[in-house]
Amino acid sequence: MKIDLNDLAALAAVARAGGFREAARTLNTSPSALSDAVRRLEERLGVRLLNRTTRSVAPTESGAALIVRLGPALSELEAAVDAVKELEGRPAGTLRLNVPISAARLVLPAIVPHFLAAYPAVKLDVVVDDSFVDLLQEGCDAGIRYDESLAQDMIAVPIGPRVQKLATAASPAYLNRRGRPVHPHDLMQHDCLLGRFPSGSMPAWQFEKDGKVVRVEPSGPLTVRIGAAVDLAVDAAIGGVGIVYLFEDWLRPHFASGALEPVLEPWWQPFSGPFLYYPGRRLVPAPLRAFIDFIKAEPQGVTSAAASDQTSAPVRRRSGRDCG
């Protein structure tokens, strides 16, 4: 049975985008052309692959099974074509990254403008997702996560700040009203603004001082989904609702303005920064190779020569950091 690869690519694009219009914009084609491609594929296979309504498009059971198998195969084909282009010295194409909101907020802004200026033929497609995903199944070339979230078979390259801290903070009005904690255990007597991962788990708050690590599980009047609603927790803290626990870099502008005051600062625990990761058992697409080379060469990518010389990094397990 002869199947057009373009029709298979159209099916994968529509499923990934969740609709014909969005997929058409991504591929610079028309929704009707993609609809025709999927219909041809369904006719050749003799099964329905997509359920279509006026509001949504979703794979059928057969379609989902095919798309799962298609993802790695199409990625390999794209990588092979990109490798040929790279031999001509012109990396081009789309680089799809899956990143947590913390990376979108704190890491990529220092990198993306310079990278796109250096590689004008490369387009970046950034998916912000705080869950842990299968990169190939999701149609992404690489992702950004912290070391404890990385599978052992992934290649990991340092990106962004190599040392970060999770900070606690509250508004001066709240602290004047409720008092200022001097030890992490004091948080148990305070209103704390909590975060929940998409999986449903709620990470403990972890602190460290003079080699002593303290973990607490405070309570409070507000819980937000880590990632999508973190700014709500920050706004609530500024409004005097309670104490927030978040990346120091995220809260620093509010420290500078006086809207928030650091809490328990001597106890803020440092941890290693994020990594760009990608599967090791596949061709590296030219846009991804260009991005890897860029973050190794640029000072915002890594902070030490030793780190920039590594093509992979050891994975050290720590408590969850992909929050906010």
Rank of each mutant, 00 (worst) to 15 (best):
R318P: 02
S131A: 08
R39V: 07
A151C: 09
F197H: 15
A307S: 11
S219M: 13
G93R: 03
A64C: 14
R39F: 11
L50R: 05
L108C: 05
S149V: 03
S131P: 09
G324R: 03
A297W: 02
V126E: 13
E138Y: 11
R281H: 13
A58T: 15
D134I: 06
L276F: 01
L283K: 10
R21H: 15
V263C: 05
Q300C: 10
V81P: 03
E76N: 06
P31R: 02
P120N: 09
I67P: 04
R316P: 00
R39E: 08
H190R: 11
L124I: 13
V68I: 12
G89A: 14
R145T: 03
D82I: 00
T26I: 06
W205H: 09
F255I: 11
P218Q: 11
D186T: 10
G239E: 13
D322T: 08
S75Y: 01
S312K: 10
W205P: 06
L193T: 03
V302H: 01
V128F: 06
T223Q: 11
K85H: 08
D309T: 05
G93L: 01
L264W: 12
D191A: 15
S35D: 12
V182N: 09
E88C: 07
S149Q: 06
G195Q: 15
A313E: 01
T29R: 07
Y277K: 04
A307T: 01
E261G: 04
L288W: 01
P262N: 13
G200V: 01
W267S: 14
V133D: 08
L135H: 02
D36N: 12
L136Y: 03
R317S: 09
A64Q: 14
Y245N: 15
C192T: 14
L246F: 07
A79R: 01
T53G: 03
N176F: 08
M202P: 04
V128K: 12
A117Y: 10
P274F: 02
V122K: 01
A236D: 07
E265I: 07
E43K: 13
A305I: 10
K209I: 09
R321W: 02
V302E: 00
F291I: 00
V230Q: 14
K209G: 04
S102V: 04
N6T: 12
A156N: 04
G19V: 06
N28E: 15
L50D: 03
F291T: 03
L49M: 08
Y174R: 08
A9Q: 15
V133Y: 04
F207E: 11
A305D: 13
A79Y: 02
F291P: 00
R281E: 14
A307G: 10
L45V: 04
F207I: 09
A92E: 12
R252T: 10
S312M: 11
D82C: 01
A313G: 11
L106Q: 02
L5F: 07
G200T: 05
